[in-house]
Simulated scan of single mutants.
Amino acid sequence: MSNDGVDNGRRRFLLWSTSAVGAVGAVGIAVPFVKSWSPSARAQAAGAPVEVDVSKLKPGQAIKTEWRGKPIFVIRRSAADVSNLEKIGSLLKDPESSNPAQQPTYVDKVKRSIKDDVMVVVGICTHLGCVPQQKEQVEPAIGGGFFCPCHGSKFDLAGRVLAGVPASDNLEVPPYTYLSDSVILIGVDKGAA
Rank of each mutant, 00 (worst) to 15 (best):
E136Y: 10
G129W: 15
P100D: 09
E66D: 00
S180R: 08
C130D: 14
Q137T: 15
K154S: 09
M119S: 15
V183A: 15
C148K: 01
V121A: 12
T126A: 11
G144W: 03
L92N: 02
E96K: 13
A80E: 15
L162D: 01
C150I: 00
G89L: 10
I88F: 03
P95F: 01
V138I: 15
L85H: 11
S83F: 04
V138T: 11
I114F: 12
K115E: 14
C148W: 02
S98A: 13
S180M: 10
K154V: 03
L128A: 10
K93L: 13
D108L: 05
G159N: 08
C150P: 03
L91G: 09
G159K: 04
F147N: 04
R77M: 03
S83C: 01
A163Y: 00
V82W: 00
S98F: 12
S180G: 14
V107H: 02
Q137Y: 09
S90A: 15
R77C: 07
M119I: 12
V161A: 12
P132A: 08
K87W: 05
A163T: 07
A101I: 14
L162F: 02
V183C: 14
E136A: 10
K87C: 10
S168T: 15
S113C: 10
L171I: 13
I75M: 13
Q137F: 06
P175G: 11
R77P: 08
R68A: 06
Q133L: 14
V107I: 06
E139Y: 08
V165T: 09
P140V: 11
V74W: 02
K109D: 05
V138S: 05
S180K: 09
G143V: 06
P104H: 04
D169A: 13
Y176N: 09
D116P: 12
P132I: 08
V121C: 03
C125V: 14
V138H: 06
N170H: 10
G152V: 06
V165S: 01
T126K: 04
G143D: 04
D81Q: 09
C150W: 00
A80Y: 05
A163N: 10
V120F: 06
E66Q: 11
V161F: 02
E66C: 00
D81M: 04
V121Q: 07
K93Q: 14
P71V: 08
D94I: 00
S113I: 07
P149A: 10
A167P: 05
E96R: 08
W67P: 00
V118C: 09
V121I: 14
E66A: 08
V118Y: 07
